[in-house]
Design a binder for these strands. Structure first.
Lengths: 209, 209
DNA sequence: TAGATTGTTAATCGATTAACAATC
DNA sequence: TAGATTGTTAATCGATTAACAATC
């Protein structure tokens, strides 16, 4: 299995390739992608070779072909269905996130305990928690986003596991526990991200440290 | 300078120490922190030694003392002021984020181009963009969060630089450009995070890959 | 003291980069 | 062909882990 940072780079190559395609480029060299993403050309080629993505010696990579292959690795060759649990600001932000529209990522529904949030008619409808399991099974949803307050996150997590969710993006600042090793959890802790930023600003200001 | 992942671990040690403190622990061993955060005890001690954080042989680390030192490294020994530009769902989510309340992270204001968002009386007031530079200078704000649509992000970034902001957390899915090497930018791309999750779910389902 | 844990050094591991033969 | 770029191997670099002397 490849490391997280390698996959993050593949996403960046894909985004760079999309930009170049919109500029009417037909092919791209490892050197172009390196410049666009801030890595070395060696690393671009190494990353590609690890996934069997190949180009033409002397001719670089055909952008369309490259995008097809990158999208396949990143699971963007088919629709990936997500539900969001917790339709507060963060959850609503995910539902409305414009970046997902042209991608194969679709937020198919939200769930909440607050009846004032329910809305069965919306494009991405919001349902009560009771209906979560049935919805996930009927619609074969594989992914869940946890955007509830921290005290509710563990319980929501367990419901997602029971419903058969395979992958979870967790915004709550707690470490979710489960003995189910089949589920993949990625945590996005906003406080941690900010602490990281603060550290790098502070050490930049004081280069002596 | 230390790497990003090392600082992320320090945040996790801090969070684990806080939990143990709330359980009335007075001291903690590298082994406890390792268990709580999923790393090795060696790594905990190595990380600490790199920042001059020391404990007592045989006696572990005094939690209060440890927290003081970790908070100092992470810049949480003093109030860090943030502004949010773009008060949509994501921006509003950051302003209301409960995790910041007990920390030294404070979102002091929001800025938007939409007059319906303005609110000078709120706890975290929202102002028009025109007032950004003056506000930042008057209030000595060091950090900015960009939560505007991608097409507006570069312009907002430039205004933040001109205003004297030192660090930026960018939610917009573009690579911000600047020749000012003093500003620190961290990007948080939600689509990339999701692609990463999808990849690890897919490779788990197909262990042959 | 005996035992346990730190702090640090050395060994290992993995990821990145450099170099270059293959080849289009 | 001559020249340029890939794909891959080998070298380097950095980060993690193991081991253990110091010591509380």
């Amino acid at each position: 299995m490849s490391s997280r940072s390698r996959i993050l780079r593949l996403s960046r190559y894909k985004n760079a390739a999309l930009r170049l395609k919109s500029l009417n480029f037909l092919k791209v060299f490892s050197d172009n992608l390196a410049d666009a993403t801030g890595v070395t050309a060696s690393q671009v080629r190494k990353d590609f070779s690890l996934f069997g993505i190949s180009g033409n010696r002397r001719g670089g990579y055909q952008i369309d072909e490259l995008l097809t292959q990158l999208n396949k690795v990143l699971g963007k060759d088919k629709l990936q269905k997500f539900i969001v649990v917790g339709v507060g600001n963060m959850g609503r932000g995910m539902i409305n996130y414009p970046g997902f529209i042209k991608s194969e990522i679709k937020i198919v529904a939200g769930f909440d305990i607050d009846p004032s949030k329910y809305n069965r008619k919306a494009d991405a409808p919001v349902f009560p928690m009771d209906e979560l399991t049935a919805f996930v099974k009927t619609n074969e949803v594989e992914f869940g986003i946890i955007a509830v307050p921290d005290f509710a996150a563990q319980e929501v997590f367990e419901r997602l596991i029971q419903a058969g969710i395979k992958g979870v993006l967790n915004f709550a600042p707690i470490r979710l526990k489960s003995d189910n090793t089949d589920i993949v959890v990625h945590n996005l802790n906003l406080e941690t991200e900010i602490e990281n930023l603060i550290y790098f600003v502070n050490t930049k200001v004081n280069p002596a440290e």
